[in-house]
C-alpha cells in the first residue's frame, strides 16, 4: 500500500511581475511529498525554488492550484490558519540565520514557543532541550555575535525544532558556511530527517543535494524529478 502524501501540490502556479515583465516562478506544478522524505530542490537562481519552498512553508500563497498538507488546503487558508501552520508544523532554517541579535541563543529558540503561547517554564525547558540536541548546551546565554557561523546555524536549527515540526524547510542552510561547517550542519539536518522529520532543502550545492533521498530541479517554474 503506498504511503499517503504529507504534502500534495496540484497545478500550482505563481507569477511575479517585476516592472513590465511577468516572471513565471511556478508554472502548473504538481507534486507530492511523503512523510519522512529528504528532498533537495535545486535550480539556478530565479528559477522558483524559493517560491516553491515558501508555498510549502505557508509563507506565500499560489495564484492558482491547491496545496494540501494533511488534508488542509493552504491556498485557501487565512492568515491565522497559515500562521498556526507555520508555528506548529514548519521549521524554517535560513541561509542568513536570521537570529535576533539582541537575544541570547536560548531566547532565540524560545521565540516560536512564545508565539505559540507556551508558559515560561515549559518554553525554557523545551528551548534548552533543542539547544542540547544541536550540541549547544554550553552556549545558551551567548548572543549571536558571540557565536561562530556554524553555531549560529545550529541555534537557528534549534529554533526550527522548538515546536516539534513535521517539516523543516532549509533555504541554502550551508550557503554562509565553510565546507567543514557546512558538512556538520548537513549531518545534523540529516540526523533530524532520520528521526522522522520531513526535510526540504533548497540548494545549488551538488554535495548537499547528493545526500537527499529525492531531488527536484526547477527550471523556469517547471519541476523535474531527479538531477537536471
Amino acid at each position: 500500500m503506498p504511503q499517503p502524501a504529507l504534502i500534495e501540490l496540484k497545478s500550482v502556479s505563481k507569477d511575479y511581475t517585476i516592472g513590465d515583465e511577468t516572471l513565471h516562478a511556478l508554472a502548473n506544478v504538481s507534486l507530492s511529498i511523503k512523510p519522512g522524505e529528504f528532498i533537495a530542490i535545486t535550480g539556478p537562481s530565479g528559477s522558483g525554488k524559493s517560491t516553491l519552498a515558501n508555498i510549502i512553508g505557508g509563507l506565500d500563497k499560489p495564484d492558482s492550484g491547491s496545496v494540501e498538507v494533511e488534508g488542509a488546503d493552504l491556498a485557501k487558508a487565512g492568515d491565522r490558519q497559515l500562521s498556526v501552520y507555520r508555528n506548529k508544523h514548519i521549521g524554517f532554517v535560513f541561509q542568513a540565520f536570521n537570529l535576533q541579535p539582541t537575544y541570547t541563543a536560548l531566547e532565540n529558540v524560545m521565540l516560536p514557543l512564545v508565539l505559540a503561547g507556551a508558559g515560561g517554564k515549559e518554553r525554557k525547558a523545551r528551548a534548552q532541550e533543542c539547544l542540547n540536541d544541536v550540541g549547544l548546551a554550553d552556549r545558551m546565554s551567548h548572543r549571536p555575535t558571540q557565536l561562530s557561523g556554524g553555531q549560529r546555524q545550529r541555534v537557528s536549527i534549534a529554533r526550527a525544532l522548538a515546536n516539534k515540526p513535521s517539516i523543516i524547510i532549509a533555504d541554502e542552510p550551508t550557503g554562509n558556511l565553510d565546507s567543514a561547517k557546512g558538512r556538520e550542519i548537513m549531518t545534523l539536518l540529516a540526523g533530524l530527517n532520520k528521526q522522522g522529520i520531513t526535510l526540504i532543502i533548497i540548494t545549488h550545492d551538488m554535495e548537499v543535494a547528493k545526500q537527499a533521498s529525492r531531488v527536484l530541479s526547477i527550471h523556469d517554474g517547471a519541476v523535474k524529478e531527479g538531477r537536471s
Binding site: 512553508g57 509563507l59 492568515d79 491565522r80 500562521s83 498556526v84 507555520r86 508555528n87 506548529k88 524554517f92 536570521n98 535576533q100 521565540l111 516560536p112 508565539l115 505559540a116 529554533r159 515546536n163
Partner: peptide, 16 residues
C-alpha cells in the same frame, strides 16, 4: 523589518 519577517515565519499572525 527582517525581525518582523522572522516573527511571521515562526508563526506570528498579522494581529500579533
Amino acid at each position: 523589518t527582517r525581525e518582523i519577517g522572522v516573527l511571521r515565519a515562526c508563526g506570528a499572525t498579522r494581529a500579533t
